[in-house]
């Protein structure tokens, strides 16, 4: 295994008295693309925040890019895309202003952006397929374009590690696939990516590595090895089925119940003789 770029050992932490993460140990080598999956409240966002130095209460070891990460001391060389629902879409900012935030360390003292700053924004936007939108207000973009703007903010500083919190939530299937392909391309260019998501089938189809989280790491490995009914049921606390495609070897995750709560009503009615 390559040298770990993210090293987490015996991490316990959260926001208040009750820790969300308990005894988490995880090593992510450089160049890997990891999906964090687990139910809501399992600690996926908390784990990402621990890597960013943004989790207030932390015990244990967190090292990113060789630097010890503690609350309030984020590592340098890392990009972060937050959940879209945390963004104030009415805030008066243009796409360019948002993307420039990711370059704040490299910008000068003057309040306005230099020619080089603006060029860097345009290049990053063009790389993500949204060139020419720099002067638009963030509210006036589609869901996929909005996600790409925040991805551009994370990428403009040329990070070695990219952390994304549910980047494919609330977007349609086509946009989700476009975003995932974009991330795969970035990963192939050498960026280590850790992404939290609820999209199990997308993870199974696109990602080479997955970690199941629920307070701690339940299992990790290639999706085809980790996504078993036993591990998924343990992670999500609900029965899950894994269907295998004999031809492609791919897998599809489905709910374990034969029917949902309204199953009897959904069953086809018998035609009267």
């Amino acid at each position: 295994m390559a040298e770990p770029i993210i090293h987490i050992a015996h991490l316990t932490g959260g926001y208040g008295d009750q820790p969300i993460l308990q005894g988490v140990s995880l090593e992510i080598p450089a160049g890997r693309f990891v999906g964090l999956v687990g139910p809501s409240g399992a600690g996926k966002t908390s784990l990402l925040k621990a890597m960013l130095g943004a989790l207030p209460h932390v015990r244990g070891e967190v090292e990113v890019l060789g630097s010890r990460v503690t609350p309030g001391h984020p590592p340098i060389g890392i990009g972060y895309v937050p959940q879209a629902e945390t963004v104030d879409w009415t805030f008066p900012v243009t796409v360019e202003q948002v993307v420039l935030m990711g370059r704040i360390r490299a910008m000068g003292r003057l309040p306005w952006a230099s020619k080089a700053d603006k060029q860097a924004v345009e290049e990053t936007l063009a790389r993500l397929g949204i060139g020419g939108l720099s002067q638009r207000h963030i509210r006036d973009l589609s869901g996929g374009q909005q996600q790409r703007v925040f991805l551009a903010r994370a990428l403009i500083g040329q990070p070695q590690v990219l952390l994304l919190d549910e980047p494919t939530a609330s977007v349609d299937v086509k946009t989700r696939d476009d975003i995932l392909h974009l991330l795969v391309d970035l990963n192939q260019q050498g960026v280590t990516i850790v992404m939290s998501t609820h999209e199990l089938n997308a993870v199974a189809a696109h990602l080479p590595w997955v970690a199941c989280i629920n307070g701690g790491v339940i299992a990790q490995g290639a999706p085809v090895d980790v996504f078993t009914p036993a591990i998924l049921s343990r992670t999500f606390g609900a029965p899950m089925r894994v269907l295998r495609d004999e031809q492609t070897g791919g897998i599809l995750i489905a709910e374990g119940h034969d029917h949902g709560p309204f199953g009897d009503r959904l069953a086809p009615t018998q035609a009267a003789d």
């Binding site: 890392i78 900012v93 935030m101």
Partner: peptide, 19 residues
């Protein structure tokens, strides 16, 4: 200006980028 803009727009994320 830039630090105030970032911390007003995204107070939780701004420190991650060095504010």
């Amino acid at each position: 200006y830039k630090q105030l803009l970032f911390s007003t727009f995204d107070p939780e994320i701004a420190p991650i980028y060095g504010v």
